[in-house]
Design a protein around this nucleic acid. Structure first.
Lengths: 185, 185
DNA sequence: TAAAAATGTCTCAATATTGTGACATATTGC
DNA sequence: GCAATATGTCACAATATTGAGACATTTTTA
């Protein structure tokens, strides 16, 4: 049987992504566990959310770091990071929503230290591509960053809602992102 | 002084967009009105959300319809609709989040009848462009629809968070959308 | 200005949510 | 099988939220 703590966190992520104020009862149900058990693992709602955030951040970061390392070509690095994020599904959506209200500048500092340097790596690639004029010169990096996140979420959502086949989803996302920033390969 | 009912609805939209479970107290505060007054206008939370939905849907629809009519060229129609949606800001985000979990197919039926035929018009333009091979042939209409919404929200969010200047925001959104779907003008 | 309408203040009961204790039952590892 | 651990069930108090009544105060309107 799956580790109970893990089960609860996964359930909480699914719940809180849709509605951050779902009751503990709802989360427990979703996890297939009694409310009492949930409270044995997490003191209170704040604690639970904190743990979710940490777990999901680590998980996304690990996946995107691995994706980053998988190739030497910078464009392929970005593509792999995009795919990794999409594969993270609910996890990615959760941490995105958590950070949604922070401005780009705040986020920059936070993410680097808290969750490794995936974002920093991403930024460096983008700056490099921009310097080489391989992407649309009008667009700013913060815009592209927001767009990157939005396209990932669209991809995750499109699969979950049943609009798009899982296989198409990543392909569409990459094609759209490349086009959106005018990337020349 | 602004109509109280309107003030409350606007406040509720701002609140519920960020957290659908904000208390009535919070909404009343945000509206600068006592909780008792709020309850005189809206029987309960369900009623309030229902009214918000209706108002915002009408408002977005009106704006996008006007934008649609403003030009004869189909591409400019789409661009104007995009701009209109961005200008709707909180209103747009609210109705988007409300409908976020419906699949494209459900939405299609719902929106046409409930909120005029803006979506139908948008679809017809896209189908026309696709038939003329003026947009990326690989992408499907449901994907493009989701992407359209995502880019609008990114644009709204980018301005609100302070990352992007208001003037740049619409420009970026249109450039990115055109690129993402490979639109040939 | 005076009546009418709108809003605020204070209050209360009903309900929902939360966190925990006490104990029973199930599951695991040896 | 037995001890240890994990989980479930039920109960309980503490707190938060909701919806509404009664009446005062402010604002509108005629």
């Amino acid at each position: 049987m799956l580790d109970t703590r893990t089960k609860i966190i996964a359930a909480a992520v699914r719940c809180f992504r849709e509605n951050e104020s779902d009751s503990m009862e709802k989360v427990a149900d979703e996890a297939g566990v009694s409310r009492r058990t949930l409270h044995r693992y997490f003191e209170n709602r704040r604690d639970l959310i904190e743990c979710c955030k940490k777990e999901m951040l680590d998980s996304c970061n690990r996946a995107m770091n691995e994706a980053y390392e998988r190739d030497i070509d910078v464009v392929k690095k970005v593509r792999n990071m995009l795919f990794a994020a999409i594969e993270q599904g609910a996890n990615y959506s959760f941490i995105k929503r958590i950070y949604e209200r922070s401005a780009f500048s705040e986020l920059a500092g936070k993410k680097e230290s808290e969750s490794g340097d995936v974002k920093l790596k991403w930024l460096q690639i983008m700056q490099e591509l921009q310097k080489e004029h391989r992407i649309d010169r009008e667009l700013t990096i913060p815009w592209i960053f927001n767009l990157f996140g939005a396209i990932i979420e669209t991809s995750i959502y499109a699969v979950e809602s049943g609009d798009i086949a899982r296989n198409d989803s990543k392909k569409f996302a990459w094609a759209s992102f490349k086009g959106a920033i005018g990337l020349k390969e």
